[in-house]
Design a protein around this nucleic acid. Structure first.
Lengths: 190, 190
DNA sequence: GTCTATAAAGCGATAGAC
DNA sequence: GTCTATCGCTTTATAGAC
């Protein structure tokens, strides 16, 4: 009977999954209480601002995860090529090879875009900037690094869309493979 | 006073825009009546199946547009390279350089995915197959054509996501530029 | 074919007991 | 901190007048 939830952060992963699967509008309080096991009372105790605060908290946690697991290694790990390969693998796991939606990307397509504007912009620009840093450290020109980084981030988003539409992880895994070679090679063809 | 709407197809473009801007769940009948100027009575007269039938009809119209303007030229136009360049331009216009969401892509991310499963799959596979046909006709190997086509379609989807998140058409237009060169070149670097 | 009125259900959010 | 009960509003959908 003892509820295992003492902190807000304990429910964030479950919350995130509901938003990912149903979107912001689709994630009803009914679905959220079912997924978290928490009544509305508890939910509003942790998130007085309601659904909007829940979604904002989820975005913040996602942001923290990417900062820690992806951006920081890309920026600071001594060998930038190793950092690229490792974080590409982490991204593949995180998105379950395209089976799992990127909440930030999904929010960018919906009317949620304006509501969480700054969070979305920051998530993508910091990802791109971290990649640019790794790529320039690995010897690329600024211009090359920038184009490559933007293409990598957008390709991952598109790969999720396509893999989900086709219900096939192929597009996502092939994209990761292509990026591994494109980002670590010295600029040759695919 | 004379209402200008005599056929179902007259409302489809307005309907499509509402679904694009608000998603399936977010597109309430209230928003739809406002956007189309039609009362619920008329709406249910044209679409007895309600919102689901409206969305299905919109998807079908989108499918028809792409079949006509994109897939058919890629498959049959005498010069495949010209077909690629022309359809890339049409795609750029259609998505307003990334300002306009791809409804099919957005549906693939949401819970709408299962509801419209066949439509989504068909839209993307036919796009990819048509591109494969143009690329092989232009002299690519089957393997090359397939990888290139999948990458092109998914890059366009990702470019929309990123352009919307950053509120900047740059990623989208750069992606079209990159694809123009990657799909019409003979396989060199970017 | 279009409208208004209305039904029935679900929504997010709040209050208050415990 | 968690629950249930409830409010007020919006939702989809239907009925029936015109």
């Amino acid at each position: 009977m003892a509820r295992m939830i003492r902190e807000r952060s304990d429910v964030l992963p479950m919350l995130a999954e509901v938003f990912r699967e149903h979107g912001f509008e689709g994630a009803s309080l009914a679905l959220i209480t079912a997924a978290t096991g928490l009544g509305k009372g508890s939910l509003y105790h942790f998130f007085p601002g309601g659904k909007e605060e829940m979604a904002a908290a989820v975005l913040e946690e996602i942001d923290g995860w990417f900062e820690r697991e992806i951006y920081a290694p890309l920026r600071h790990q001594s060998d930038p090529v190793i950092a690229i390969v490792i974080t590409l693998g982490a991204v593949e796991d995180y998105f379950r090879s395209g089976r799992r939606v990127c909440l930030v990307g999904a929010f960018a397509l919906g009317e949620t875009r304006d509501r969480f504007k700054e969070g979305l912009r920051s998530y993508f620009t910091r990802w791109i900037e971290a990649l640019v840093m790794a790529l320039t450290r690995s010897g690329r020109s600024d211009r090359d690094a920038r184009l490559l980084a933007e293409d990598a981030v957008l390709s991952i988003q598109g790969a999720i869309v396509l893999s989900r539409a086709l219900d096939d992880t192929g597009p996502f895994t092939r994209t990761i493979t292509r990026l591994r070679s494109a980002l670590t090679g010295s600029g040759q063809p695919r």
